[in-house]
Write a protein that binds this DNA or RNA. Sequence first.
DNA 1: CGGATTTGACCTGCGC
DNA 2: GCGCAGGTCAAATCCG
Length: 381
Amino acid sequence: MFKEEISSCVNPSDGVMAESDKEEELDVTKAKVEKVREENLKLKLLLSTILTDYNSLQMHVSKVLQQQRGASVELDINRHDDFGVDISLRLGRPELKIYQKDEVPKKTSLEKISERNKEGSEKKRSAFGLDFRIQSFKDRPNIDETMKLDYISRGVKEANAVNKCVSSRKDVKTARNENQQEVLETHEQPSLKKTRVCVKATCEDPLINDGCQWRKYGQKTAKTNPLPRAYYRCSMSTNCPVRKQVQRCGEDENSDYMTTYEGNHDHPLPMEATHMAAGTSAAASLLQSGSSSSASLNNFFPFHHFSVSTTNSHPTVTLDLTRPNYLNQLQNYPLSSSSSLSFSSPDRPSPSNSHTLSFNGLRSQAPLNTYSHQTRLSGQQ
DNA sequence: CGGATTTGACCTGCGC
DNA sequence: GCGCAGGTCAAATCCG
Protein backbone atom coordinates (compact mmCIF):
# COMPACT_ATOMS: atom_id res chain seq x y z
CA MET A 1 0.00 0.00 0.00
CA PHE A 2 2.64 2.45 1.07
CA LYS A 3 4.78 1.54 -1.88
CA GLU A 4 1.89 2.13 -4.20
CA GLU A 5 1.32 5.55 -2.68
CA ILE A 6 4.95 6.45 -3.16
CA SER A 7 5.01 5.22 -6.70
CA SER A 8 1.88 7.12 -7.45
CA CYS A 9 3.34 10.32 -5.99
CA VAL A 10 6.74 10.05 -7.67
CA ASN A 11 6.18 9.82 -11.33
CA PRO A 12 9.45 9.09 -13.10
CA SER A 13 8.26 10.97 -16.15
CA ASP A 14 7.62 14.02 -13.98
CA GLY A 15 11.22 13.88 -12.76
CA VAL A 16 12.48 13.86 -16.33
CA MET A 17 10.24 16.77 -17.13
CA ALA A 18 11.57 18.71 -14.17
CA GLU A 19 15.12 18.07 -15.23
CA SER A 20 14.54 19.12 -18.79
CA ASP A 21 12.76 22.21 -17.54
CA LYS A 22 15.75 23.05 -15.46
CA GLU A 23 18.07 22.59 -18.39
CA GLU A 24 15.82 24.71 -20.51
CA GLU A 25 15.75 27.37 -17.87
CA LEU A 26 19.49 27.19 -17.57
CA ASP A 27 19.87 27.63 -21.30
CA VAL A 28 17.54 30.58 -21.29
CA THR A 29 19.44 32.14 -18.42
CA LYS A 30 22.71 31.50 -20.18
CA ALA A 31 21.37 33.12 -23.31
CA LYS A 32 20.21 36.08 -21.30
CA VAL A 33 23.58 36.43 -19.62
CA GLU A 34 25.25 36.23 -22.98
CA LYS A 35 22.94 38.86 -24.35
CA VAL A 36 23.59 41.14 -21.42
CA ARG A 37 27.29 40.60 -21.86
CA GLU A 38 27.09 41.56 -25.49
CA GLU A 39 25.06 44.62 -24.68
CA ASN A 40 27.57 45.52 -22.02
CA LEU A 41 30.35 45.25 -24.56
CA LYS A 42 28.45 47.39 -27.00
CA LEU A 43 27.82 49.98 -24.34
CA LYS A 44 31.48 50.00 -23.45
CA LEU A 45 32.38 50.60 -27.07
CA LEU A 46 29.78 53.30 -27.30
CA LEU A 47 31.07 54.96 -24.18
CA SER A 48 34.58 54.79 -25.51
CA THR A 49 33.47 56.40 -28.74
CA ILE A 50 31.57 59.10 -26.93
CA LEU A 51 34.54 59.84 -24.72
CA THR A 52 36.77 60.06 -27.73
CA ASP A 53 34.35 62.37 -29.45
CA TYR A 54 33.98 64.44 -26.34
CA ASN A 55 37.70 64.84 -25.87
CA SER A 56 38.13 65.72 -29.50
CA LEU A 57 35.40 68.30 -29.33
CA GLN A 58 36.64 69.70 -26.07
CA MET A 59 40.11 70.15 -27.46
CA HIS A 60 38.76 72.31 -30.22
CA VAL A 61 36.15 74.29 -28.42
CA SER A 62 38.67 76.74 -27.10
CA LYS A 63 40.34 76.81 -30.47
CA VAL A 64 37.08 77.57 -32.21
CA LEU A 65 36.17 80.24 -29.72
CA GLN A 66 39.49 81.91 -30.30
CA GLN A 67 38.99 81.69 -34.02
CA GLN A 68 35.59 83.24 -33.66
CA ARG A 69 36.98 86.16 -31.78
CA GLY A 70 39.89 86.66 -34.10
CA ALA A 71 38.40 85.83 -37.45
CA SER A 72 34.69 86.38 -37.28
CA VAL A 73 34.62 87.89 -40.72
CA GLU A 74 36.23 84.85 -42.25
CA LEU A 75 33.91 82.53 -40.43
CA ASP A 76 30.94 84.38 -41.80
CA ILE A 77 32.11 83.56 -45.26
CA ASN A 78 32.22 79.88 -44.38
CA ARG A 79 28.68 79.68 -43.11
CA HIS A 80 26.67 76.52 -43.46
CA ASP A 81 23.04 76.03 -42.88
CA ASP A 82 22.89 72.54 -41.48
CA PHE A 83 21.71 72.74 -37.91
CA GLY A 84 23.57 75.97 -37.72
CA VAL A 85 26.86 74.13 -37.87
CA ASP A 86 29.37 75.75 -40.11
CA ILE A 87 31.86 73.16 -41.17
CA SER A 88 34.41 73.82 -43.80
CA LEU A 89 37.08 71.56 -45.16
CA ARG A 90 39.97 73.28 -46.70
CA LEU A 91 42.59 71.48 -48.69
CA GLY A 92 45.59 73.45 -49.71
CA ARG A 93 47.51 76.32 -48.38
CA PRO A 94 46.13 78.62 -45.77
CA GLU A 95 45.67 82.17 -46.86
CA LEU A 96 48.81 83.34 -45.20
CA LYS A 97 50.87 80.97 -47.27
CA ILE A 98 49.29 81.74 -50.59
CA TYR A 99 51.82 83.47 -52.73
CA GLN A 100 50.86 86.58 -54.50
CA LYS A 101 52.13 86.62 -58.02
CA ASP A 102 53.67 90.03 -57.62
CA GLU A 103 55.19 89.13 -54.26
CA VAL A 104 57.13 86.05 -55.14
CA PRO A 105 59.70 86.21 -57.88
CA LYS A 106 59.46 83.45 -60.43
CA LYS A 107 61.82 80.56 -59.86
CA THR A 108 62.71 77.53 -61.81
CA SER A 109 61.16 74.24 -60.84
CA LEU A 110 64.47 72.89 -59.62
CA GLU A 111 65.02 75.88 -57.42
CA LYS A 112 61.60 75.50 -55.92
CA ILE A 113 62.08 71.82 -55.28
CA SER A 114 65.47 72.44 -53.76
CA GLU A 115 64.11 75.10 -51.47
CA ARG A 116 61.22 72.93 -50.49
CA ASN A 117 63.53 70.08 -49.62
CA LYS A 118 65.45 72.32 -47.34
CA GLU A 119 62.40 73.21 -45.39
CA GLY A 120 61.74 71.25 -42.22
CA SER A 121 59.02 68.71 -42.08
CA GLU A 122 57.00 70.80 -39.70
CA LYS A 123 57.02 73.67 -42.11
CA LYS A 124 56.02 71.34 -44.84
CA ARG A 125 53.14 70.04 -42.84
CA SER A 126 51.90 73.47 -42.05
CA ALA A 127 52.40 74.86 -45.49
CA PHE A 128 49.36 73.13 -46.87
CA GLY A 129 46.45 72.45 -44.70
CA LEU A 130 43.08 70.95 -44.31
CA ASP A 131 41.29 73.71 -42.57
CA PHE A 132 38.30 72.68 -40.56
CA ARG A 133 36.03 75.09 -38.77
CA ILE A 134 32.88 74.95 -36.77
CA GLN A 135 31.02 78.15 -36.50
CA SER A 136 29.19 79.05 -33.36
CA PHE A 137 25.44 78.81 -32.98
CA LYS A 138 25.04 82.13 -31.35
CA ASP A 139 23.08 83.45 -34.26
CA ARG A 140 20.73 80.47 -34.09
CA PRO A 141 19.26 80.46 -30.65
CA ASN A 142 16.40 78.23 -31.66
CA ILE A 143 18.54 75.19 -32.13
CA ASP A 144 19.17 73.02 -29.15
CA GLU A 145 22.84 72.69 -28.27
CA THR A 146 22.55 68.98 -27.69
CA MET A 147 21.16 68.58 -31.14
CA LYS A 148 24.09 70.38 -32.64
CA LEU A 149 26.67 68.32 -30.83
CA ASP A 150 24.68 65.25 -31.63
CA TYR A 151 24.85 66.09 -35.27
CA ILE A 152 28.58 66.44 -35.14
CA SER A 153 29.19 63.34 -33.07
CA ARG A 154 26.99 61.30 -35.35
CA GLY A 155 29.41 61.91 -38.15
CA VAL A 156 32.33 61.05 -35.92
CA LYS A 157 30.65 57.90 -34.70
CA GLU A 158 29.91 56.87 -38.21
CA ALA A 159 33.55 57.24 -39.03
CA ASN A 160 34.65 55.30 -36.00
CA ALA A 161 32.15 52.54 -36.53
CA VAL A 162 33.20 51.98 -40.08
CA ASN A 163 36.86 52.37 -39.30
CA LYS A 164 36.74 49.59 -36.77
CA CYS A 165 36.44 47.10 -39.58
CA VAL A 166 39.70 48.15 -41.13
CA SER A 167 43.16 46.92 -40.42
CA SER A 168 46.35 47.10 -42.34
CA ARG A 169 48.07 44.07 -43.69
CA LYS A 170 50.73 44.30 -41.04
CA ASP A 171 48.15 44.50 -38.35
CA VAL A 172 46.59 41.32 -39.56
CA LYS A 173 49.99 39.70 -39.64
CA THR A 174 50.75 40.88 -36.13
CA ALA A 175 47.40 39.70 -34.95
CA ARG A 176 48.17 36.25 -36.23
CA ASN A 177 51.04 36.08 -33.84
CA GLU A 178 49.58 37.92 -30.92
CA ASN A 179 45.91 37.32 -30.86
CA GLN A 180 44.32 34.37 -32.51
CA GLN A 181 40.88 35.53 -31.56
CA GLU A 182 41.30 38.75 -33.46
CA VAL A 183 42.36 36.81 -36.48
CA LEU A 184 39.28 34.68 -36.24
CA GLU A 185 37.19 37.77 -36.04
CA THR A 186 38.90 39.09 -39.10
CA HIS A 187 38.23 35.89 -40.95
CA GLU A 188 34.67 35.92 -39.84
CA GLN A 189 34.17 39.04 -41.91
CA PRO A 190 35.80 38.16 -45.19
CA SER A 191 33.58 40.48 -47.13
CA LEU A 192 34.94 43.54 -45.41
CA LYS A 193 37.73 44.96 -47.51
CA LYS A 194 40.30 47.49 -46.52
CA THR A 195 39.26 51.04 -46.92
CA ARG A 196 41.31 53.63 -48.61
CA VAL A 197 40.64 57.27 -48.92
CA CYS A 198 42.46 59.06 -51.67
CA VAL A 199 42.69 62.81 -51.69
CA LYS A 200 43.86 64.33 -54.89
CA ALA A 201 45.06 67.85 -54.41
CA THR A 202 46.63 70.29 -56.76
CA CYS A 203 49.28 71.93 -54.69
CA GLU A 204 53.03 72.25 -54.63
CA ASP A 205 53.61 70.08 -51.64
CA PRO A 206 52.39 66.52 -51.16
CA LEU A 207 52.32 66.85 -47.40
CA ILE A 208 48.87 68.21 -46.92
CA ASN A 209 48.27 69.12 -43.33
CA ASP A 210 45.25 66.93 -42.72
CA GLY A 211 45.36 67.23 -38.97
CA CYS A 212 47.54 64.20 -38.36
CA GLN A 213 51.26 63.76 -38.02
CA TRP A 214 52.84 61.41 -40.53
CA ARG A 215 56.15 59.63 -40.63
CA LYS A 216 57.53 58.50 -43.93
CA TYR A 217 58.53 54.86 -43.98
CA GLY A 218 59.07 54.09 -47.59
CA GLN A 219 59.09 55.17 -51.17
CA LYS A 220 58.48 53.12 -54.25
CA THR A 221 58.32 53.71 -57.93
CA ALA A 222 55.48 51.80 -59.46
CA LYS A 223 55.86 50.16 -62.81
CA THR A 224 52.71 51.71 -64.11
CA ASN A 225 53.72 55.12 -62.94
CA PRO A 226 57.33 56.29 -63.12
CA LEU A 227 56.64 58.87 -60.49
CA PRO A 228 57.59 57.73 -56.99
CA ARG A 229 54.98 56.93 -54.40
CA ALA A 230 55.74 57.79 -50.79
CA TYR A 231 54.43 55.81 -47.86
CA TYR A 232 53.59 57.40 -44.54
CA ARG A 233 52.20 56.12 -41.29
CA CYS A 234 50.45 58.07 -38.61
CA SER A 235 52.84 59.07 -35.85
CA MET A 236 50.30 60.65 -33.55
CA SER A 237 50.08 57.37 -31.70
CA THR A 238 52.77 54.73 -31.34
CA ASN A 239 50.58 51.92 -32.60
CA CYS A 240 48.27 53.82 -34.89
CA PRO A 241 47.71 51.56 -37.90
CA VAL A 242 46.75 54.31 -40.30
CA ARG A 243 48.84 54.53 -43.47
CA LYS A 244 48.86 57.00 -46.23
CA GLN A 245 50.36 57.01 -49.68
CA VAL A 246 51.23 60.11 -51.60
CA GLN A 247 51.78 59.97 -55.31
CA ARG A 248 52.09 62.69 -57.86
CA CYS A 249 49.80 62.27 -60.79
CA GLY A 250 52.03 63.96 -63.31
CA GLU A 251 55.51 65.31 -63.85
CA ASP A 252 54.20 68.79 -64.11
CA GLU A 253 55.02 70.94 -61.13
CA ASN A 254 51.41 71.88 -60.73
CA SER A 255 50.13 68.37 -61.14
CA ASP A 256 47.86 66.82 -58.56
CA TYR A 257 48.94 64.72 -55.63
CA MET A 258 46.90 61.65 -54.86
CA THR A 259 46.94 60.96 -51.16
CA THR A 260 45.58 57.60 -50.10
CA TYR A 261 44.51 57.03 -46.52
CA GLU A 262 44.07 53.54 -45.15
CA GLY A 263 43.05 52.23 -41.76
CA ASN A 264 41.54 53.75 -38.68
CA HIS A 265 43.19 55.84 -36.01
CA ASP A 266 43.43 54.40 -32.54
CA HIS A 267 43.59 57.80 -30.94
CA PRO A 268 41.44 60.91 -30.75
CA LEU A 269 41.52 62.78 -34.00
CA PRO A 270 41.90 66.48 -34.37
CA MET A 271 38.79 68.03 -35.77
CA GLU A 272 40.29 68.69 -39.16
CA ALA A 273 41.09 65.02 -39.52
CA THR A 274 37.83 63.91 -37.99
CA HIS A 275 35.76 65.62 -40.59
CA MET A 276 37.57 64.05 -43.48
CA ALA A 277 37.45 60.66 -41.80
CA ALA A 278 33.77 61.00 -41.07
CA GLY A 279 32.89 61.99 -44.59
CA THR A 280 34.89 59.37 -46.32
CA SER A 281 33.81 56.69 -43.92
CA ALA A 282 30.25 57.64 -44.59
CA ALA A 283 31.00 56.93 -48.20
CA ALA A 284 32.57 53.65 -47.26
CA SER A 285 29.62 52.59 -45.21
CA LEU A 286 27.40 53.61 -48.06
CA LEU A 287 29.38 51.38 -50.35
CA GLN A 288 29.42 48.44 -48.04
CA SER A 289 25.82 48.66 -47.10
CA GLY A 290 24.80 49.04 -50.70
CA SER A 291 22.51 51.75 -49.54
CA SER A 292 21.55 54.40 -51.99
CA SER A 293 21.37 57.04 -49.38
CA SER A 294 24.13 59.47 -50.06
CA ALA A 295 22.80 62.31 -48.03
CA SER A 296 25.41 61.75 -45.35
CA LEU A 297 28.16 62.08 -47.88
CA ASN A 298 26.75 65.28 -49.09
CA ASN A 299 26.86 66.56 -45.57
CA PHE A 300 30.58 66.06 -45.49
CA PHE A 301 31.55 67.04 -48.98
CA PRO A 302 28.78 69.32 -50.09
CA PHE A 303 30.64 71.24 -52.73
CA HIS A 304 32.47 68.68 -54.73
CA HIS A 305 31.88 65.74 -56.97
CA PHE A 306 32.34 62.37 -55.46
CA SER A 307 31.78 58.88 -56.70
CA VAL A 308 31.65 55.52 -55.02
CA SER A 309 32.87 52.39 -56.70
CA THR A 310 34.79 49.24 -56.05
CA THR A 311 37.84 47.84 -57.71
CA ASN A 312 38.66 44.15 -57.54
CA SER A 313 39.94 44.47 -54.02
CA HIS A 314 38.59 47.72 -52.71
CA PRO A 315 35.38 49.61 -52.79
CA THR A 316 36.18 53.07 -54.01
CA VAL A 317 34.73 56.45 -53.39
CA THR A 318 35.98 59.26 -55.53
CA LEU A 319 35.49 62.72 -54.25
CA ASP A 320 36.26 65.08 -57.04
CA LEU A 321 36.79 68.35 -55.34
CA THR A 322 38.32 69.68 -58.51
CA ARG A 323 34.86 69.92 -59.95
CA PRO A 324 33.04 71.93 -57.41
CA ASN A 325 29.38 71.19 -57.30
CA TYR A 326 28.69 74.53 -55.87
CA LEU A 327 28.61 76.07 -59.30
CA ASN A 328 25.70 73.89 -60.17
CA GLN A 329 24.31 74.41 -56.76
CA LEU A 330 24.44 78.10 -57.23
CA GLN A 331 22.59 77.75 -60.46
CA ASN A 332 20.03 75.56 -58.85
CA TYR A 333 19.69 77.68 -55.80
CA PRO A 334 17.69 77.37 -53.65
CA LEU A 335 17.26 73.68 -54.19
CA SER A 336 17.66 71.60 -51.10
CA SER A 337 20.24 69.00 -50.34
CA SER A 338 22.15 67.79 -53.31
CA SER A 339 25.21 66.32 -54.73
CA SER A 340 26.13 63.97 -57.44
CA LEU A 341 27.09 60.47 -56.52
CA SER A 342 28.10 57.88 -59.00
CA PHE A 343 28.08 54.46 -57.49
CA SER A 344 29.59 51.51 -59.20
CA SER A 345 30.71 48.16 -58.04
CA PRO A 346 31.80 45.08 -59.95
CA ASP A 347 30.77 43.02 -56.95
CA ARG A 348 27.22 44.11 -57.04
CA PRO A 349 24.56 42.48 -59.11
CA SER A 350 23.40 45.69 -60.61
CA PRO A 351 22.74 45.25 -64.33
CA SER A 352 24.97 48.11 -65.24
CA ASN A 353 27.17 47.81 -62.20
CA SER A 354 26.59 51.44 -61.78
CA HIS A 355 24.13 53.54 -59.93
CA THR A 356 23.87 57.19 -60.23
CA LEU A 357 22.29 59.05 -57.43
CA SER A 358 21.53 62.63 -57.89
CA PHE A 359 20.61 64.96 -55.20
CA ASN A 360 20.86 68.57 -55.93
CA GLY A 361 21.44 70.56 -52.86
CA LEU A 362 22.87 73.81 -51.96
CA ARG A 363 24.94 75.16 -49.23
CA SER A 364 25.42 78.80 -48.83
CA GLN A 365 29.09 78.30 -48.96
CA ALA A 366 31.46 78.41 -51.83
CA PRO A 367 34.49 76.17 -52.12
CA LEU A 368 37.10 77.49 -49.85
CA ASN A 369 40.07 77.47 -52.07
CA THR A 370 41.18 77.31 -55.60
CA TYR A 371 43.05 74.08 -55.19
CA SER A 372 41.59 70.95 -56.54
CA HIS A 373 40.97 67.88 -54.51
CA GLN A 374 39.81 64.45 -55.31
CA THR A 375 39.04 61.80 -52.81
CA ARG A 376 38.72 58.18 -53.68
CA LEU A 377 37.74 55.83 -50.98
CA SER A 378 37.90 52.15 -51.12
CA GLY A 379 36.95 49.72 -48.44
CA GLN A 380 36.42 51.41 -45.19
CA GLN A 381 37.97 54.19 -43.32
C1' DC B 1 71.74 62.88 -30.11
C1' DG B 2 67.21 61.79 -31.34
C1' DG B 3 63.85 61.90 -34.71
C1' DA B 4 62.84 61.97 -39.64
C1' DT B 5 63.99 60.55 -44.27
C1' DT B 6 66.12 57.65 -47.78
C1' DT B 7 66.65 53.50 -50.16
C1' DG B 8 67.73 48.76 -51.17
C1' DA B 9 66.14 44.36 -49.62
C1' DC B 10 62.56 41.57 -48.39
C1' DC B 11 57.71 40.00 -48.00
C1' DT B 12 53.20 39.03 -49.78
C1' DG B 13 49.33 38.76 -52.84
C1' DC B 14 47.80 37.99 -57.34
C1' DG B 15 47.64 36.64 -62.13
C1' DC B 16 49.17 33.44 -65.47
C1' DG C 1 54.72 27.09 -59.10
C1' DC C 2 56.66 31.22 -60.86
C1' DG C 3 57.23 35.91 -61.71
C1' DC C 4 55.74 40.49 -61.11
C1' DA C 5 54.33 44.47 -58.67
C1' DG C 6 52.94 46.73 -54.61
C1' DG C 7 53.84 47.31 -49.84
C1' DT C 8 56.86 47.16 -45.73
C1' DC C 9 61.13 46.79 -43.17
C1' DA C 10 65.26 48.41 -41.38
C1' DA C 11 69.94 50.06 -41.72
C1' DA C 12 72.15 54.09 -43.28
C1' DT C 13 71.97 58.81 -43.62
C1' DC C 14 70.40 63.42 -42.87
C1' DC C 15 69.13 67.29 -40.13
C1' DG C 16 67.92 70.40 -36.44
